[in-house]
Nucleic acid binder design. Structure first.
Lengths: 114, 114
DNA sequence: ATACTTACTTACATAAAGTAACCTTATTAC
DNA sequence: GTAATAAGGTTACTTTATGTAAGTAAGTAT
């Protein structure tokens, strides 16, 4: 007895992409393949969660993990076709945020911006 | 010293919209104004969380709450302009899920669908 | 007065996220 | 050989968010 009127695929997709950090990680990887520490620094996410989330996304077929046995070892994360197919979603999201999102004064470092 | 390379507006927007249930609620309201119990049933979300999330979204200027003192009282939730402006994001998301999301067999109620 | 409906709240258990310290493999520095 | 550094994690622990169930408040309807 499923009362839900929401498309189950949409629901599942939303669960994957809107999980905390997942969207920002994908958005970051849309800029190109990157290694662990680069993403960690860019998003200010902890290693623990980045590791966990990258595993989730790899498991969902959105992220690909490549090991280059150089010295020191280089591990690059990139998007699969499925991941890259999310680009339009994020483009629209960027449009929306640039029009509708205001930052509450917070920087406190540059009073001239307000 | 903000090392983050992500646009703060994008980050903030993502936090709002990708919070658990927020996206599904907005998507649901894109179909038109609805009352509490309708959303509750459609999304299979608990009253506790729906109440909390609607308040968040109202606070962010995405959702509007209208009280009609009928009998019994009717309270309708709808999207503001800011909320409706998210439509293209969800359209792209729908496209992505319809192409890339597979449902793992789960229904168990209708074996003919597999 | 009692019951019913809608729209919430409260209280409590569980799960996820955040933080910090530690581990592993390899490489160079002393 | 021992220490120090670096990448890419993992473990242990605290805090916050989510899920579940039961309860409340206002306004009828009987």
């Amino acid at each position: 007895m499923n009362q839900s009127s929401v498309c189950p695929r949409f629901e599942k997709g939303m669960r994957i992409v809107s999980k905390r950090w997942a969207g920002l990680i994908i958005h970051q990887l849309l800029k190109g393949p990157q290694r662990f520490c680069t993403i960690e620094t860019a998003l200010q996410i902890s290693g623990r969660l980045l590791s966990e989330r990258l595993k989730d996304l790899e498991h969902e077929g959105i992220v690909k993990r490549d090991v280059y046995p150089e010295t020191p070892v280089r591990i690059e994360y990139s998007l699969t076709d499925k991941g890259r197919a999310l680009a339009p979603v994020f483009r629209e999201m960027e449009k929306w945020t640039s029009v509708w999102i205001e930052l509450d004064e917070e920087p406190a470092a540059d009073p001239l911006t307000k």
